[in-house]
């Protein structure tokens, strides 16, 4: 009987803890988002974050997209050959990259690179009292630290994913023309013929949401980091894990919405 009570108690405590965290994250997101639209605006910080989050993530997103597009072309060719549908390789690579793999894999790679970096930076600032120092210097840390990161990630991710999509399609093209024997101009024609505006728009909308999630998780966990090196380490792990899980969950919800 005691064991059942203890188990139920543990489940209840975990549920309450989970709901409390969800509530805290939502309040944090609302506060931070409201600061994006209210002056003063920190343009220099926004520009710096656009560079950090967007420009410096290009290599990792580009390489991921290149190899994914190339592998996708091989897989689709192999699967399509079973019912004489090898010709769909260019269009399926393009649609698959633009609608699904570009934003999701790009989001996950950026989550690994950016959420961890934001959480570690803000966590260190919390531990070394730099965030308290900002407040004593009449500067709102939410406005100075969090709002520019959220805005930059939301703006930069669609651009990153657009570049990644193009590179991914190029990966498919290289494999299609060099390895699978497709005619170069026919491959390009096939890609553009079947790709619709809605495919691109839904992929870029997903990317913006994923960018917001990545920055939000990095900022939330870093801003509320525990004490010491262990606290910063935990914040970094939590940021990457929660951002990755939330990206996959949001991807399903958005796919349903755009279906």
């Amino acid at each position: 009987m005691q064991l059942i009570e203890r188990s139920l108690g543990a489940i209840g405590a975990a549920t309450l803890g989970f709901c409390t965290t969800i509530g805290r994250v939502i309040l944090f997101a609302l506060r931070a988002t409201s600061h994006i639209f209210r002056p003063p605006f920190y343009g220099r910080e926004l520009a710096q974050q656009l560079m950090q989050i967007g420009y410096f993530s290009l290599p990792v997103v580009g390489l991921t997209a290149l190899f994914t597009g190339a592998a996708l072309a091989l897989q689709i060719y192999s699967g399509g050959a079973r019912f004489n549908a090898e010709a769909v390789v260019p269009s399926i690579v393009a649609i698959g990259m633009v609608r699904e793999l570009g934003p999701v894999l790009g989001g996950l790679m950026v989550a690994g690179r950016v959420a961890s970096s934001i959480a570690a930076e803000l966590g260190t600032m919390r531990v070394t009292e730099q965030i308290d120092a900002l407040t004593t210097l009449s500067t709102n840390p939410m406005k100075y630290l969090v709002a520019p990161r959220l805005a930059a990630a939301t703006l930069a991710m669609p651009v990153l994913v657009a570049v990644g999509d193009t590179i991914g399609i190029m990966g498919g093209y290289l494999v299609g023309t060099n390895r699978l024997g497709f005619n170069a101009s026919a491959y390009v024609q096939n890609t553009t013929d079947f790709l619709q505006f809605q495919d691109i728009a839904s992929g870029l909308a997903k990317a913006a949401v994923f960018g917001f999630i990545v920055a939000l998780m990095g900022c939330y966990h870093g801003y509320n980091s525990g004490r010491g090196a262990a606290g910063v380490g935990r914040a970094t792990i939590n940021a990457v894990v929660s951002a990755s899980v939330m990206i996959l969950a949001a991807n399903y919800i958005l796919t349903e919405a755009f279906f």
Binding site: P40, T128, E129, Q130, A133, T135, T136, L137, S138, T139
Partner: peptide, 29 residues
Amino acid sequence: LARFGMLFQGAALFDSLPVWQNVAFRLLR
């Protein structure tokens, strides 16, 4: 807060800014 100045235990200087911008942080905003 404008009435206060504070020296933190570990100095709490902003790593990403040069020394002069740390000192003049409040004066630049």
